[in-house]
Computed example of a mutant assay.
Amino acid sequence: MKFEALHLLSRIFSSKYSEVLKDALHLITGNNWSDYIHTGIVAILQNRVSPAEKLHALILAESMVSMLGEGWLIGQSSLADSHDPMPADRCLLLVLESSRVEIAVLLNEIAYLKYEASNNTSATAETILSKQRNVVVAFSLIERIIKLVSTAGGVEGKLIDDSTIVKVINGLNETINVVLEYLEDAKEHREKKGDDLLASVRIVGSYLAEMPNACKEKVRELLAYLLSIEGEDEASPFHSTCFLLPMLCQVTMNVAGSKALISSGGYKAVVDCLIKLIGPSRSTVEDNGRIFLACDTIMNMLLKVELSW
């Protein structure tokens, strides 16, 4: 019965009716519907269930976080009939670990289908698309967890203890390494275009914005390639550069980082990105932030390289 409920909820909450449902649920007396879902997701993720059921649990978790914020992942249930309260970090760690495993499995399967499978049929293409959609769910959860731990160890008054933060960072490091290996494989196959590749750059950029020195050697080896990746409908690698700007701005604050960006030729992507950002068709607040990051990155390079001469 609980799996049928899981399937139903994951479909409803990820549908276009999710906002209407959310508003209706807030009117329910007691208003603890999210605690029931929180408890149910934990129960599924911590037990031996099929990968398909875990995926549905992650889809539902992603919908809940999208609606209620990252704070939903932490905290104890307020259910009156909860006789054995779970640790505050249980849901967070389970979602992280399940997402990490899902990403590793799905990216491995996608890479096999794209580069090694003998039958390149329409059915294979549809399978790849399905797996890419699923990996986006896990990517979204990882990105939310990155945001959560970047808020000084807590959100909405809920603190995350140091031991949990260490576990989360270790899990994130493992996840980002898996994503970088997927991108490395794509580079070896000379593939630069694809929404799955762009999504991979985005998740890497999100993490490196908070931990710019993580996976340093592998990132430097792949830097030029990362800055060349284009989305399916892009004519240039604009978005991949935007995703990496926060990290580039930080690493170019030292001479070694500036030289690495220059030697890789990545500075050209930053300049091209800046030109597009200051064009007449772009004027959003988000673009303004990117303009500052691009300008700071370029200034860092000029100043640090000049000082090193």
Rank of each mutant, 00 (worst) to 15 (best):
F3C: 02
A5I: 07
H7G: 07
S14D: 09
S14M: 06
K22A: 01
G30Y: 01
N32E: 00
W33S: 02
K54H: 07
M64G: 07
S66E: 12
G75V: 05
D81I: 07
D89M: 04
D89R: 07
L93T: 06
E97R: 14
S98T: 04
S99L: 02
S99K: 04
N108L: 01
K114T: 00
E116M: 01
N120R: 10
T121W: 00
S122W: 01
S122D: 04
I128H: 04
Q132P: 01
N134W: 00
A138N: 03
T151S: 15
T151I: 14
G153C: 13
G153L: 11
V155W: 13
I160N: 08
S163K: 13
S163H: 11
V166H: 04
L172P: 01
V179E: 03
E181R: 13
L183N: 14
G194I: 14
L198Q: 15
R202F: 07
E217G: 10
R220M: 09
I229H: 13
E230S: 11
D233E: 07
L244P: 04
M247H: 06
L248I: 12
V251I: 14
V255S: 03
A256W: 01
K259G: 03
S264F: 01
A269P: 04
V270A: 12
I275T: 13
I278M: 11
G279R: 11
P280T: 15
P280R: 15
S281M: 06
E286F: 06
E286M: 10
D287I: 06
A294C: 07
T297R: 10
T297D: 02
V305Y: 05
V305N: 07
